[in-house]
Amino acid sequence: MHASEQENLVSIVIPCYNQGKYLRETVLSVLGSTYHPFEVIIVNDGSKDDSLQIAGALAKEFPEVRVIDQENGGVSKARNTGIEDANGSIILPLDGDDLISKEYIEAAVKVLKAQPAVKVVYSQGVKFDEAGQKSWNLKPFSRHQLALDNMIFCSALFRKVDWRKAGKYSEEMRFMGREDWEFWIKMLKDGGEVVQLPFTGFYYRLTPNSKRKKTSSAAIKRERIAFLNSRHAAYFSRELNGPLRFRRSWSRPYNTMLKWLGML
């Protein structure tokens, strides 16, 4: 592939674990994109359903699609595997049950091409299930708010070079959840602009077996916060005057009080 082709190519990386029921719909939403050229890399992460067979059928049907099959290693490992293998200079992670609008990639690429200071482009989003769509009010991005919670869904576009500089997705977070939040912290804590497109470009499917529900216990939350503090202590100190706390919104006032008392 020539350098100019690689520069314009967008690689959509789709980790898939037991999402065969939705995978074709997800891939078709990408194939309907107004932007070209692109490639679709499905990473089958040790699925126990028919995901691998469906992915293989899609690859035979559509030349833009190819499949990587690996033992189950979690979504971070699957994303890293796909991005490592990607030929494109711009990456869009997309889970195997979510959807994008046809104009999303084209609009995001225009921003990344025109504004080198921008590291991440995403859009407005909605959540949906079989009952219909539900509004999703994403908070505006700021580095301070990112220290407290994530406002950028996993399916934002970024440059492959910035993924590498950030240190890739943290595969150690396999059982902690919120890997995308930690990745955006790594990507953005020391600079870089973020643009949210003014339209709905991402559709997040709500399912009974979502990982977020499985990683919402107090014990897992404490493990996740300890991991974040161990990796990003200087960032939290700058934005929160100390470490991230279990009750995240209390972090800065609590840290400030402890410092005033000489206990931090």
Rank of each mutant, 00 (worst) to 15 (best):
L9M: 08
I12H: 04
I14N: 08
P15F: 01
Y17N: 02
Q19W: 04
V27K: 04
V30C: 13
L31W: 07
E39L: 02
N44F: 05
Q53K: 05
V67C: 05
G73D: 00
K77A: 15
R79I: 11
G82V: 04
D85Q: 11
P93S: 12
P93N: 08
L94W: 02
D95I: 08
G96H: 07
S101M: 07
S101A: 12
A107E: 13
K110M: 03
V111I: 15
F128R: 00
K134G: 14
S135R: 05
M151H: 14
C154D: 11
S155Q: 00
R159P: 01
R174Y: 09
F175D: 08
R178T: 13
W181G: 05
W181C: 08
E182W: 10
K189E: 05
V194S: 05
V195H: 13
Q196D: 00
P198R: 03
F199V: 04
G201K: 01
K211E: 08
T215A: 13
A218Y: 04
R222Y: 12
E223C: 11
L228I: 14
N229W: 09
L244N: 10
R247L: 15
N255W: 00
M257V: 15
K259R: 15
K259S: 13
L261H: 12
L261A: 13
G262C: 06
